[in-house]
Simulated assay, not measured.
Amino acid sequence: MKKTMMMMAVAVMALTAACTGKKTAENAAAQDTTSVVDSTATPSLDLAVVAGTYEGTLPAADCPGIKTVLTLNTDSTYELKQDYIDRKDGHDEASGVFEVLDGKVLMLVRPSSGEHTFYKVKDAQSVIMTDSLGNEPESDMAPLYVLKKKN
């Protein structure tokens, strides 16, 4: 069934290309040009501007907060230190690499587990913790998810 549908799709595409009066190579070139324009539309993030140490206290469900220190480096590496306030053995550290997604979202990858954490660059002085799509928190607590650059 799938082979039949695939053959029909190929046949329809071939007929469409033949009926337009344009050569297939010209159509492919036009599509390539379009995709190049689309891929360059997303502005890139200047890591030299973003690099630095960011600090703040993030909300937590089981303690008063998580004191967080995030250091971003120009070589796309990071260090993350977190202290869970009023919790015994509540210290966590991680380091690894980060990727820039959609121009402003940083995906921190924890090498030991493959776990991802996401921060969005608000401006040159702050980042905010987001979900995997870069959506910022919307509640009254949203400002509590912001880490400020240490000068």
Score class of each variant (00 low, 15 high):
Ala28Val: 09
Gln31Gly: 10
Gln31Ala: 14
Asp32Trp: 13
Ser35Tyr: 15
Val37Lys: 14
Val37Tyr: 13
Asp38Ile: 07
Ser39Trp: 13
Ser39Gln: 07
Thr40Ser: 09
Thr40Asp: 01
Ala41Tyr: 00
Ala41Gly: 00
Ala41Ile: 04
Thr42Phe: 00
Pro43Lys: 13
Pro43Cys: 00
Ser44Cys: 06
Leu45Thr: 03
Ala48Cys: 02
Ala48Asp: 12
Ala48Glu: 11
Val49Ile: 09
Val50Trp: 04
Gly52Asn: 06
Gly52Glu: 09
Thr53Met: 06
Thr53Lys: 08
Tyr54Gly: 05
Glu55Asn: 11
Glu55Ala: 11
Gly56Phe: 14
Leu58Asn: 02
Leu58Pro: 08
Pro59Ala: 00
Pro59Tyr: 01
Ala61Ile: 09
Ala61Arg: 12
Cys63Tyr: 01
Pro64Ala: 03
Ile66Phe: 00
Lys67Ile: 04
Lys67Trp: 11
Thr68Leu: 10
Thr68Met: 12
Val69Glu: 13
Leu70Phe: 07
Thr71Glu: 13
Asn73Gly: 07
Asn73His: 05
Asp75Leu: 09
Asp75Met: 11
Ser76Thr: 09
Thr77Asp: 02
Thr77Glu: 01
Glu79Cys: 04
Glu79Pro: 01
Glu79Arg: 15
Glu79Gln: 15
Leu80Lys: 14
Leu80Tyr: 15
Gln82Glu: 15
Asp83Met: 08
Tyr84Phe: 13
Asp86Ser: 12
Arg87Ser: 07
Asp89Gln: 11
Gly90His: 04
His91Arg: 12
Gly96Tyr: 14
Val97His: 14
Phe98Ser: 09
Glu99Thr: 07
Val100Gly: 00
Val100Lys: 00
Leu101Arg: 01
Leu101Phe: 01
Leu101Tyr: 00
Asp102Tyr: 05
Asp102Pro: 03
Lys104Glu: 09
Val105Ser: 03
Leu106Ser: 08
Leu108Ile: 04
Leu108Ser: 03
Leu108Pro: 03
Leu108His: 02
Arg110Thr: 12
Pro111His: 02
Pro111Tyr: 04
Pro111Ser: 01
Ser112Ile: 00
Ser112Ala: 12
Ser112Val: 00
Glu115Ser: 10
Tyr119Thr: 00
Val121Gln: 07
Val121Gly: 09
Lys122Met: 12
Lys122Val: 09
Asp123Val: 03
Ala124Cys: 02
Val127Trp: 15
Ile128Trp: 15
Ile128Gly: 06
Met129Lys: 13
Met129His: 05
Asp131Ala: 07
Gly134Ala: 02
Gly134Met: 03
Asn135Cys: 01
Glu136Leu: 07
Glu136Tyr: 07
Glu138Ile: 11
Glu138Gly: 14
Ser139Asp: 14
Asp140Val: 06
Asp140Pro: 11
Asp140Ile: 05
Asp140Met: 12
Tyr145Asn: 08
Tyr145Glu: 08
Tyr145Phe: 15
Val146Leu: 09
Leu147Val: 05
Lys148Cys: 02
Lys150Pro: 03
Lys150Gln: 14
